[in-house]
Simulated scan of single mutants.
Amino acid sequence: MTGLLVVAGAALAVVVVLFVLFRLTWRVAEPNEALIISGLRDRGTPEGVSESLGFRIVTGKGTLVLPGIQTVRRLSLDLREAELEIECVTHQGIPLGVRGVVIYKVGDDYASIANAARRFLDQQADMNQRVHNVFAGHLRAIVGSMTVEEMIRDREKLTQLTRESSGTEMEKLGLIVDSLQIQEIVDPTGYITNLGRPHNAAVQSQARIAQAGADREATEREQEAEALKAEAVRASSVKQAGYQAEIDRAAADARQAGPLSEATAKQQVVVQETRVAELEAQREEQRLQATIRKPADAHAYEQTTLAKAERDARISAAEAHAKEVELQAVANSQRVKVEAGADAERVRLAAGAEAEHV
């Protein structure tokens, strides 16, 4: 039993030792880095890089490293950004400042990684300055062959020429350019500002002319609108006056309708009274014919004379009444005319009845 425990313990110790040794010798390259392994010459690297440079490159996988015999260093494959601030002189002798940015990285192929490792493995912090120096020289040369007008009109040309001219040198350094942007062209002498003054003045002049035209057109439209508004107000006032006149006429007609109706009613009353008087006269005449005519022959002269006098009095009264009615007709012609006619008719009929009776 004791022997078995010893064997088991020894086996476990061996496993632990092997695991620790494996952990000490196994290195893994992250996706954004390359392992640069130097020491023993390795013939398994593609393209014979290990034969030509004497080190091994590992990317995206793990590898065994012999401690004390081989050395492992890491080269970052991340994107890097270098600011460009370069003073240049154009073909015309105009000093300009160019501001831009270069986005670059170590190439993914073994040759680029090998070139970058030989130049920057222990100086990775200085890569931005080295790239700035490369682009500064090429950018000064290109700006020196261009005019200010060309740079303003075709900034893409400046970017393309700079990228092409620096491409070979960047390739030798094991670097590739992802993006180059010229962000700003600084004009310390004011040449660009003066260059744009004529165009700016022309644009401002056109803007003032356009504004004046717009103001004039707006004024004309406002005047037309005011004229239309005044015309509408006048037409409305005319219509309102016409409506008011119609209302006044209707009110006057309504006021006159009452007196006219009253006068007509009175006229009808007078006519009816006249007819009643005629009937009464006829009845009285018949009664007189039957009972009084013979006894009254002697008294006929007296009655005739009295009747004539009474008739004359009634006629005079009727004439006076008619005159009074005529005077009242001046203020209310229709009503007075109707009443006067009715009274005259009644008096005439009464007088006729009396005359016939006599």
Results as ranks from 00 to 15, higher is better:
Arg283Pro: 01
Leu77His: 01
Glu220Asn: 05
Leu173Asn: 09
Gly93Asp: 02
Ala342Trp: 04
Glu33Val: 03
Gly3Glu: 15
Ala265Ile: 06
Ala263Arg: 08
Lys337Asn: 14
Gly44Asn: 08
Ala117Ile: 04
Val338Gly: 10
Pro31Ser: 02
Arg155Ser: 08
Ser179Met: 05
Ala331Gln: 09
His199Tyr: 04
Ala317Gly: 05
Leu228His: 12
Leu35His: 00
Gln183His: 11
Glu339Ala: 04
Asp78Val: 03
Ala10Gly: 10
Thr71Leu: 06
Gly190Arg: 09
Ala277Asn: 10
Lys105Tyr: 02
Phe120Met: 08
Ala342Thr: 06
Arg283Gly: 05
Gly190Asn: 06
Ala111Asn: 05
Asp108Val: 05
Phe135Thr: 08
Leu175Tyr: 05
Ala296Tyr: 08
Glu284Asn: 12
Ser237Trp: 08
Lys172Phe: 09
Gly196Gln: 10
Asp109Ile: 03
Gly196Thr: 08
Glu246Lys: 09
Glu51Trp: 03
Gln204His: 10
Arg118Met: 15
Asn32Cys: 03
Arg140Ser: 07
Asp178Gly: 03
Val101Asp: 00
Ile182Cys: 01
Val16Cys: 09
Ala8Val: 11
Pro188Met: 07
Ala277Trp: 11
Val233Leu: 15
Gly107Phe: 12
Thr168His: 11
Arg314Ser: 04
Leu18Arg: 14
Ala214Asp: 08
Tyr191Ile: 00
Val271Phe: 15
Val148Asp: 01
Arg287Met: 07
Thr25Glu: 07
Pro198Met: 00
Gln160His: 13
Gln181Pro: 05
Lys323Ile: 10
Ser236Val: 04
Arg216Trp: 05
Gln268Leu: 13
Glu33Trp: 07
Thr159Val: 12
Leu84Met: 14
Glu284Cys: 03
Val6Asn: 06
Gly258Ser: 13
Asp126Ile: 12
Glu246Trp: 08
Ala252Ile: 07
Asn115His: 12
Ile182Lys: 06
Gly196Phe: 13
Glu278Thr: 13
Phe22Asp: 09
Asn194Gln: 12
Ile182Gln: 06
Ala263Glu: 04
Gln303Gly: 12
Ser50Gly: 02
Phe120Ala: 05
Gln204Arg: 15
Thr59Tyr: 00
Ser52Trp: 01
Lys172Leu: 13
Lys172Pro: 01
Lys157Gly: 05
Tyr104His: 04
Pro295Ala: 04
Leu35Pro: 03
Ile176Lys: 13
Ser76Tyr: 02
Val143Pro: 00
Gly68Gln: 06
Gln211Phe: 04
Arg216Met: 09
Arg99Lys: 10
Glu83Thr: 06
Phe19Asp: 10
Asn128Trp: 07
Ile315Gly: 01
Val102Ile: 14
Leu139Met: 14
Gly341Arg: 12
Met146Tyr: 01
Ile192Arg: 03
Phe19Lys: 04
Leu161His: 11
Ala342Cys: 02
Ala331His: 05
Leu175Gly: 03
Ser237Val: 14
Ala331Met: 07
Arg41Phe: 02
Asp178Leu: 11
Val269Lys: 15
Ala300Gln: 11
Val106Lys: 04
Asn194Gly: 07
Ala212Phe: 11
Val58Trp: 01
Thr63Trp: 02
Thr305Ser: 07
Arg23Gln: 15
Lys229Ala: 15
Ala331Asp: 08
Ile103Asp: 05
Ile192Leu: 09
Arg348Asp: 12
His357Trp: 03
Ala320His: 10
Glu149Leu: 06
Val28Gln: 08
Gly68Pro: 07
His357Cys: 00
